[in-house]
């Protein structure tokens, strides 16, 4: 029977209250939302926070809307809500693709977008999806809010720019009319963490690629992305050979590690192959739009 060590529990009633609790308990407190990573880690005693600050009641972090040409995703939006949102489906097929392959319905009902990003697992699907979309993260602290590009949000495995005493409040993603996006993942079994996965965003004008975003996860791509491959795409035709070359360039920036999901060269191969596939699907969707 797995049981956690002793900890204090506080239920925050507002964002200021949550911030006050974080300040009171200091760096050994952890924020809990869906709890689908934190609670198992506590039961395995890989994590032993002194206090949990439960933010599940903070409805002000659960918004999902388009405002000022951007999609605003509150940190407390559940995976299932993102997946079911017609707004998201209309503009961000990549998020629907990614959410479909994140864990299982039970986890998605409870797990949150913000929690997934703050957990900062090096194999997190949403890190790659939002990196491909060039999203911004809004972080709230005692001194107010600051905006951080998602590509700079993660500082390493299980590390983010969110300081003790701060909360991730929301993600903001520019709505690009006419853009196509897609997410491709290889997993050993449904619901597993990816062996490797790639997301792509593509905007085509007059037959040429005018904007491209690539997100990669589980392959140690710095910032979960591949800027050089993105640059390569700009001004080129959306054809298979171009996507394949972008895939090769994306794979080149990866530094995957061997584990039971596969050896490093296989994962690097997948980074290229899945980038190619995601770009191709994104381009097709852009054309259909």
């Amino acid at each position: 029977m797995q049981v956690p060590a002793r900890f204090e529990y506080e239920k925050a009633t507002s964002v200021p209250h949550a911030l006050a609790l974080l300040e009171r308990y200091g760096p050994d407190a952890r924020v809990v939302a869906g709890g689908h990573s934190l609670i198992p880690m506590m039961k395995l005693r890989l994590a032993q926070p002194e206090a949990l600050i439960d933010i599940n009641d903070l409805r002000e972090l659960a918004h999902l809307r388009v405002e000022g040409g951007e999609l605003a995703v509150g940190a407390l939006v559940r995976h299932a809500e993102l997946l079911a949102s017609p707004l998201v489906a209309e503009h961000f097929a990549i998020l629907i693709d990614a959410e479909r392959v994140i864990a299982d319905p039970v986890v998605r009902n409870r797990g949150t977008v913000g929690g997934s990003l703050c957990q900062a697992d090096p194999s997190e699907d949403l890190a790659a999806a939002f990196a491909a979309l060039k999203a911004d993260a809004v972080v709230t602290g005692p001194g107010g809010s600051r905006t951080v590009p998602l590509r700079g949000f993660h500082q390493g495995p299980y590390e983010t720019v969110v300081e003790p005493g701060e909360l991730l409040a929301e993600l903001r993603v520019p709505v690009r009319h006419g853009a196509g996006s897609a997410y491709e993942k290889v997993e050993r079994r449904v619901g597993d963490w990816p062996v490797a996965a790639a997301g792509a965003l593509i905007l085509i004008e007059d037959g040429l690629i005018t904007e491209a975003g690539i997100g990669l996860t589980a392959v140690s791509a710095p910032g979960f992305t591949a800027p050089e491959a993105e640059d390569y795409l700009i001004g080129r035709e959306p054809v298979d050979a171009v996507f394949a070359e972008a895939g090769r360039r994306a794979a080149a920036v990866c530094n995957p590690h061997a584990d039971q999901r596969g050896p490093a060269d296989y994962k690097r191969h997948l980074a290229g192959e899945l980038t190619r596939r995601a770009l191709r699907k994104a381009a097709r969707r852009a054309a259909e739009d």
């Binding site: 050993r188 079994r189 449904v190 619901g191 597993d192 963490w193």
Partner: peptide, 14 residues
């Protein structure tokens, strides 16, 4: 393979 994260049981999907 000491957890269901690493010891994979098939699901209806497979």
């Amino acid at each position: 393979g000491a957890s269901f994260m690493d010891y994979l049981l098939p699901t209806a999907v497979e």
